[in-house]
């Protein structure tokens, strides 16, 4: 595993970006950058030196949890990081209704007019994912393996005979 510990000066910049985008002000983790500009969060008690020693002795696959990916100027929170940090997220939240939620959780994009950029989707006081808006539509970034595979509920206004891809 290729990894790099994020220095405190860089962490401060990241935190400033997270505050601007999401309102997150506290990140009590050791941040580690792995491939594809992914940042992982480690809350464990091993020091950086001990982690490096361990990497010499064993085959480390992952350290901590995937938290953020850096893409262009965006800091994109991982789906699971959203629920971990949900108490701190206060900005760029878009609320959806039940019908929209049923589409969202199955991986569909949502026809919602909102500000451009990365948005957090909220449904009934739960943060249920992240998407990117082009002002007219929110593109769904819910990981495929976390989408619900069942058909839309019988009472959904979006239920048709079309396949998911047609919608």
């Amino acid at each position: 595993m290729n990894y790099k510990f994020i220095k405190s000066s860089e962490k401060r910049k990241i935190l400033a970006g997270l505050e601007e985008q999401y309102g997150i002000t506290d990140l009590p983790y050791l941040l580690i950058e792995t491939g594809k500009k992914r940042l992982r969060a480690f809350s464990g008690s091993l020091s950086k030196e001990e982690i490096s020693d361990l990497a010499q002795l064993t085959n480390i696959e992952l350290i901590g949890m995937y938290l953020i990916s850096r893409k262009d100027n965006d800091l994109r929170l991982n789906f699971d990081a959203i629920s971990l940090l949900r108490n701190q997220i206060t900005k760029n939240i878009v609320g959806i209704n039940k019908d929209q939620f049923e589409l969202w959780i199955r991986g569909h994009d949502l026809e919602i007019e909102t500000q451009r950029g990365i948005v957090i989707i909220s449904f009934e006081n739960e943060l249920v994912g992240i998407g990117k808006s082009n002002a007219e539509k929110i593109f769904n970034y819910l990981p495929k393996e976390r989408r619900i595979k069942t058909a839309l509920p019988a009472d959904s206004q979006f239920r048709t005979n079309k396949t998911h891809e047609d919608l």
């Binding site: 085959n59 480390i60 696959e61 992952l62 350290i63 901590g64 949890m65």
Partner: peptide
Amino acid sequence: IKILSTNLERCGVTNTITTR
């Protein structure tokens, strides 16, 4: 390991180092 990591992430586990 992939199944393990999916479950660790889903549960928000941050104190773990996964080795193979």
